[in-house]
Structures are given as structure tokens and as C-alpha cells.
């Protein structure tokens, strides 16, 4: 499916709010970015932090933010959210640690089992340590001008299944994919001061 079809004000299906998984990490930045994106598009969808499993089924979409994937994953299990997220039929917007959590499998990682939301294999901390974190303009399928992407101890996708649409690739691997109502990114659009990824999710992916 083409990245940008001019349907930016198409009302989104479903009624519930957008939830941002608020266990650990860059939660408030995601809430603010989604609120701005919703306002820009005139959609009037509320955006709420989500800490409990019973808040998830009523959502339009769930964002899994950046943070420490081992910590977030442990808290997902501790709070009994694993199954609820796995069976959630709405949209998923996952960035950085969220990509690790959403993966089917992880390379060289035995510390936890990811949620298998998307048929991808992910390499955690693919770039190395924090000093290797970087920002750069990233060419994304159908997006012009390029998106200024911020990679912080970022993961990359080393294998994408047949139903997964690859949106951006760099030397180290795939860094943006879409699969059904799910958008999975290695980088942090919530701190780029550019709402195009959030708006694309609201208008094209959901």
C-alpha cells in the first residue's frame, strides 16, 4: 500500500482512546506527540496513559514507548498484561524498546520472551552502546522530505515475515515496518518534533 494517500482527515475506525503503555520510559513524550497529532488532524480522540490490563481492550490503539525493554517486559508480565496485549485487536505503535517487545523473536537474547505481535526478528542494541547513538535524516518509503530520526541504543529488524511491509532500511538492518494495524519503529519520532509518523499511524495504519 502506498505510504501517503491523501486521506489525512479520514475518521479513524473505533471509538476508544489511544493508550500509551505507562510502565517505564518515554511515556509523556508519546502522549504529547499523539495529542498534537490528533489535534492537527482534528480527530478529537483522547490520549491516556495505560498501566493496567483491564484498560487495554477498550482502546483504539496502544503505543509501546521507548525505555528499557527488559524492565518494561518484566512489568508487563508482573502486571498480568501479556495475554491482553497479545489478543488486543486494535492498532499498535511501537518504538525502540517497543520494537523489541513486539517482536516474534530476538537474536542472542534469552532474558525474556517477546510478545510476538509482528512476524519480525529483532537484534537488541544493534548499534552498540550509548556513544554509538545518533540522529540522522532517514529516507522512509513515500515520505518526503526524509524524517529526522533519533536512534538511542536502538534495535534493528534482521528478518521481516512475508506479511510485513518494510518502510525503511539502513546498513545495519530494517528500521521501520508496518504490518496490518501495527507500525514498528527503531527510532524515536516522539522527540523529533515532527508528527508525520504519528499522523501516518492515525490516518493510514489504523
Amino acid at each position: 500500500m502506498p505510504f501517503h494517500q491523501n486521506r489525512c482527515c479520514r475518521p479513524v475506525a473505533g471509538n476508544g482512546p489511544i493508550g500509551v503503555l505507562a510502565l517505564q520510559g518515554n511515556v509523556s513524550e508519546h502522549i504529547e506527540a499523539f495529542e498534537s497529532a490528533v489535534n492537527n488532524l482534528g480527530l478529537g480522540i483522547p490520549v491516556i496513559p495505560v498501566k493496567r490490563a483491564d484498560e487495554i481492550p477498550g482502546l483504539l490503539a496502544l503505543a509501546i514507548p521507548g525505555g528499557e525493554s527488559t524492565t518494561i517486559m518484566r512489568l508487563i508480565d508482573q502486571n498480568g498484561m501479556r495475554e491482553t496485549i497479545q489478543t488486543f485487536p486494535g492498532g499498535i505503535f511501537a518504538t525502540c524498546a517497543g520494537m523489541v517487545i513486539a517482536a516474534r523473536e530476538l537474536t542472542g537474547e534469552t532474558r525474556f520472551t517477546p510478545l510476538d505481535l509482528v512476524d519480525i526478528t529483532v537484534n537488541r542494541n544493534a548499534f552498540g552502546r550509548q556513544r554509538e547513538s545518533f540522529e540522522s535524516d532517514l529516507a522512509i518509503e513515500g515520505m518526503n522530505p526524509p524524517f529526522h530520526a533519533i536512534f538511542i541504543r536502538a534495535p534493528v529488524i534482521t528478518r521481516a515475515g512475508p506479511d510485513v511491509c518494510v518502510l525503511a532500511t539502513i546498513k545495519q538492518g530494517i528500521v521501520a515496518v508496518r504490518s496490518g494495524k501495527k507500525l514498528i519503529l527503531s527510532f524515536h519520532p516522539e522527540i523529533s518534533n515532527d508528527l508525520r509518523m504519528h499522523q501516518y499511524f492515525l490516518t493510514e495504519v489504523l
Binding site: A22, L23, Q24, G25, N26, V27, S28, E29, G66, G67, E68, C96, A97, Q130, S133, F134, E135, I150, I152, R153, H188, I191
Partner: peptide, 11 residues
């Protein structure tokens, strides 16, 4: 990048 790293530690 530096402040972003710190931000990922929140919570």
C-alpha cells in the same frame, strides 16, 4: 541524543 537517553530511564 544525550537528553533522550536520560528520558528513556524515566519511571
Amino acid at each position: 541524543i544525550k537528553r533522550g537517553f536520560a528520558s528513556m530511564q524515566k519511571g
